[in-house]
């Protein structure tokens, strides 16, 4: 099969699978969503009539396939639907949440890259040396340390003792420092390990000694040969890193009481506002599929053997 067509088909399968699966899971979630919506909406004890009305209104009584088609049809034209609690369209609220989370995710990624790239490069200069062992130890520590614990340590040190940065909330660039650092250190830990092993493997490539004997200098060997070879395994895990970043961002937001996707999702789940939950899940799936598509395309650019191998 044609490579591009196969990639697209795979993306479509993943997206429809995600849509169907989340819908099934939420449909079978315990409890009565109509009752929860009624309580969320009127904030008091409600009569059975009201609950029934909400059930009809939200299409909850129509049966699985009707409800599914009510949800999926507008989704196909890009309409995420309305909140079942407030009745307002989901997208504006969700967009606000994304715009709040984006700077945090970028900050985490930036800190992660800024720490892991130099650390990995230094570490592989002398494999098994003290810098290398230190880097591996730090990376393992970082991977083992839960975000909430690291966040508390950072808050204790920089917000409570030193009073350098605010511990909670949002509003200024200073508010971004501690959450960004929490996220970034986690990203750095996993990226350092991946980069280190990718670089080590690339430095062991069989053709490098011959290049050196041919008179090709160490700088050129590093940039023209080692770097592209190391990029391949790093690209492979780009999707996983994104998952790590998103999951981390949501968790960090909750810890630091920052509004954003994390708060949006948690409130939606607590209120049983399923259309909102589904919107977040679908958005995440689209993001993943896009990143994986891009990775695959980049992959083919760096290593043209992929995709031609079976030909």
């Amino acid at each position: 099969m044609n490579g591009a067509a196969e990639l697209l088909l795979r993306s479509v399968v993943v997206l429809s699978g995600t849509a169907i699966l989340t819908f099934i899971l939420l449909w079978h979630a315990p409890g009565d969503p109509a009752l929860t919506i009624a309580v969320a909406r009127y904030d008091s004890v409600v009569s059975a009539d009201v609950v029934d009305r909400i059930r009809t209104e939200s299409g909850l009584d129509a049966g699985f396939w009707t409800a599914f088609s009510h949800w999926i049809t507008p989704l196909l034209s890009g309409d995420l639907g309305n909140s079942s609690v407030s009745g307002r369209p989901i997208w504006p609220e969700l967009r606000t949440a994304i715009l709040l989370t984006l700077p945090l995710a970028l900050m985490g990624l930036l800190i992660g890259l800024a720490l892991s790239i130099p650390l990995a490069i230094l570490a592989v200069r002398h494999p098994g040396g003290w810098i290398d062992r230190g880097a591996v130890a730090l990376a393992s520590l970082g991977a083992a340390m839960p975000a909430y614990w690291l966040a508390l340590l950072l808050i204790l040190a920089f917000a409570v003792k030193l009073l350098w940065f605010p511990a909670m909330g949002t509003g200024s660039a200073a508010h971004l420092v501690l959450p960004g650092l929490t996220l970034g250190l986690g990203v750095a830990a996993s990226l350092t390990r991946i980069l280190r092993s990718a670089l080590l493997e690339a430095k062991g490539a069989p053709f490098l000694p011959a290049l050196a004997r041919r008179g090709v200098g160490p700088r050129e060997r590093a940039f023209s040969h080692v770097a592209p070879h190391a990029a391949i395994p790093v690209l492979t895990v780009a999707g996983l890193e994104l998952a790590f970043l998103l999951e981390g961002a949501v968790m960090v937001e909750v810890i630091f009481a920052r509004p954003g996707l994390g708060g949006f999702l948690i409130h939606a789940i607590q209120a049983r506002d399923f259309p909102k939950v589904q919107a977040v899940v679908m958005l995440t799936a689209i993001l993943f599929v896009t990143v994986n598509l891009l990775t695959d395309l980049l992959y083919r650019l760096v290593d043209p053997r992929i995709g031609t191998r079976d030909a």
């Binding site: 053709f207 000694p209 011959a210 041919r214 008179g215 023209s224 040969h225 070879h229 760096v302 290593d303």
Partner: peptide
């Protein structure tokens, strides 16, 4: 395999040499 980078073209190897 011990002399050529599989990710680089032959023209690149020649210019590099």
């Amino acid at each position: 395999d011990e002399a050529l980078d599989p990710l680089r073209t032959l023209a690149f190897h020649w210019r590099q040499a």
